[in-house]
Design a protein around this nucleic acid. Structure first.
Lengths: 253, 253
DNA sequence: CAGATGTATCCGGAAAGACCGGAATATTCA
DNA sequence: TGAATATTCCGGTCTTTCCGGATACATCTG
């Protein structure tokens, strides 16, 4: 039986400090030292070392994550095949609907807005590429959750819980599972006022080779999504888009 | 005299490995070990430790940078004041010109496209948020370079050189400095075919409290930018935008 | 402006833990 | 299926981290 070996403490600490720098949006040795209950001089050694990498830099006497993270984040996205294939289709849908269209993926048990395209007067209440939310509070998340293996769903609920965002948020695992069953039946997910009051969305899963890669969603004001004609229209657009993307993803150049 | 202490080797190596993972877009112990001339087992210890952080994950038997970089990159951008203030103005200009509008900053001696807004049929030859290029090959870069302290300019040339991208690229430091002088006189920078054939751009610096924060640029096909009427029109739009942003940056809520 | 308080940096030796050879699995490929 | 290659596991040695204490620097404060 392999003895679960502990990670290299120096590596673990380095990244712990990185995360604190991120959280605090910059800090000095003493502030971090008190958080980690380590001597200032030790933390200083780390910061000094981190500062020698491209990932951290010192401005105004504080150590920060450097803009290299923006470079990596941007390039990572740019070289992702799903993004490449999706972007033109998303722009197309925006030009037709003038709403907010997003590509969401699962990341560490949460819904990550991978990319979004905004119409001229699209509703945008604080979503952006890079934003994360609990999976169960948004249609895009539920469209993904519905196609994850049962064990993984349980694991996520276990790990993350079912945090309540608004009065509409589903907080009971059984209710959630019923809803996911419904999503699988319909082939799409809908929500309104679950994440943010006044905002609703429709979402469809992107499934390739039996595997859920993410979901496309369209965000609209709650009022409009409750209109079933408009809802149908939007869902249809999403499904068309997904079909094209699925094909291009697999067979495109 | 302080003895220049070496960075913690473990920290340096961890980030070196991170960079290799990024470069190779995923790898295993042996591949990295041979690059760094270290035993496989040592590299394994690092990968194991990195995998315990949010920054690296293991898929398909390989270790990769995780999508957490997209989260950080996206959020870092989203919480940046210059971005917040610039975005609406950039959208405005796009709606007026239907070209590609970008916000560029200096990052580690290179031009980093921090954000961009695209018109419907804007020219887009591989620029995107996160893309970097040498400063001297693009108008946005020159608009920044022109307002950096002389020492910093020399340092960048020293460190990065003046790489040739096309026949139009400036490769002589003296010629570059003359051009930067010209930029300071005019208050804007222009280029065409220096970075990519067929693409040209105009850019103006964003200066607040005597400090250069970045530049706004508009990308257009070479043909159009050579038309001096259109050039003037574009430069004027950029200057108006910069004025608004400068004011909002300082005095906005 | 001097003194006081807090923070950052520097140093060197003790103690912790990274390092790596070698063995055991796991995976790939013919 | 067997050989070859890659990954994972282990434990003792010895390099490096770690940290107390000293010093430099910055910021208040009366």
């Amino acid at each position: 039986m392999p003895t679960d070996r502990t990670p290299l403490t120096t590596v673990a600490r380095a990244f712990e400090i990185l995360s604190i720098l991120w959280e605090l949006d910059g800090a000095g040795p003493s502030e971090i030292a008190s958080r980690l209950d380590l001597p200032d001089s030790t933390v200083y050694d780390y910061l000094r070392s981190l500062n020698d990498t491209r990932y951290v830099s010192r401005d105004d006497g504080e150590y920060h994550l450097s803009s290299y993270f923006i470079t990596i984040g941007g390039k990572m996205k740019y070289r992702n095949r799903l993004y490449q294939v999706s972007k033109p289709e998303m722009k197309q849908v925006v030009s037709e609907t003038d709403e907010l269209v997003g590509l969401t993926v699962e990341s560490d048990g949460r819904a990550l807005v991978y990319h979004q395209e905004e119409g001229r007067q699209a509703l945008n209440l604080g979503t952006y590429s890079g934003a994360t939310t609990p999976l169960h509070t948004v249609a895009t998340g539920k469209a993904i959750l519905a196609y994850l293996p049962e064990e993984r769903i349980d694991e996520i609920i276990e790990q993350r819980g079912l945090e309540k965002r608004t009065d509409q948020t589903i907080t009971d695992p059984e209710v959630l599972k019923q809803e996911l069953e419904q999503v699988r039946e319909d082939g799409y997910a809908i929500d309104w006022d679950e994440q943010v009051i006044g905002m609703g969305m429709a979402a469809v899963p992107i499934i390739i080779d039996e595997e859920i890669l993410g979901s496309f969603g369209i965000v609209v004001p709650t009022g409009r999504i409750r209109d079933s004609t408009y809802q149908e229209e939007i869902v249809q657009k999403l499904q068309e888009m997904t079909n094209k993307v699925t094909i291009n993803y697999q067979y495109g150049d």
